Computed example of a mutant assay.
Amino acid sequence: MLKDFQAFIARGNVLDLAVGVIIGAAFGNITKSLTDDVIMPVIGAIFGGVDFSGYFLRLGPVPAGYTGSLNNYAALKEAGAPLLGFGQFITVVINFLILAFIVFLIVRSVNRLMTRLEREKAEGTAPPAADPADVVLLREIRDELKAARGV
């Protein structure tokens, strides 16, 4: 069983997948920062300086003993108040759309590169052009002369 596991791990696909997951997680953090720190503040400024992550609806009472602001989503959520955080959802959707668009651009670029490489390979391996008829005739004459001489 241990040998099977080692063979499974040693396959290139598994290692490629592991590298992809690690890079994907790091890329997700970059995209999250891009969304939270660059795009959402600009969108918030366009819509009057509003932070989307602060948009929420309370669905029930605030827990007893809570002394924080009733407008602080993070504090209310931490206190255990039932909240509908649609602003945070909007932020996550925008984050997903950015990530999906970037992945689309990467896949599109790779597909174009692969198509170009396949086309260059096909052009490089094209069969040679057929010899002209007079060249073929001259070769036949040469071969007949060689055969007549007995060479």
Score class of each variant (00 low, 15 high):
residue 73 Y to R: 15
residue 58 R to Q: 14
residue 38 V to D: 08
residue 85 G to C: 12
residue 69 S to W: 05
residue 35 T to E: 05
residue 124 G to V: 03
residue 26 A to C: 09
residue 104 F to V: 03
residue 44 G to C: 00
residue 108 R to L: 14
residue 2 L to G: 15
residue 3 K to M: 08
residue 45 A to F: 13
residue 127 P to T: 02
residue 111 N to H: 14
residue 109 S to A: 15
residue 91 T to Q: 12
residue 52 F to E: 08
residue 25 A to I: 00
residue 122 A to I: 00
residue 47 F to M: 09
residue 39 I to H: 00
residue 85 G to L: 10
residue 87 G to A: 08
residue 100 A to Y: 09
residue 7 A to K: 14
residue 112 R to S: 11
residue 29 N to G: 11
residue 110 V to A: 13
residue 21 V to D: 06
residue 20 G to S: 12
residue 117 L to A: 05
residue 69 S to C: 08
residue 8 F to S: 10
residue 102 I to R: 01
residue 16 D to Q: 12
residue 21 V to W: 08
residue 105 L to S: 06
residue 34 L to P: 02
residue 49 G to N: 07
residue 8 F to C: 04
residue 145 L to F: 07
residue 60 G to D: 07
residue 51 D to H: 06
residue 89 F to M: 15
residue 134 D to F: 13
residue 90 I to R: 01
residue 54 G to F: 02
residue 73 Y to Q: 15
residue 12 G to L: 10
residue 40 M to C: 07
residue 68 G to V: 04
residue 39 I to E: 00
residue 58 R to P: 04
residue 8 F to D: 03
residue 26 A to P: 03
residue 83 L to S: 01
residue 116 R to A: 14
residue 142 R to H: 09
residue 80 G to K: 04
residue 12 G to S: 10
residue 10 A to Q: 15
residue 118 E to M: 06
residue 28 G to I: 01
residue 129 A to L: 15
residue 151 V to C: 01
residue 21 V to E: 06
residue 68 G to F: 06
residue 125 T to M: 12
residue 80 G to W: 11
residue 149 R to I: 07
residue 52 F to M: 09
residue 32 K to I: 01
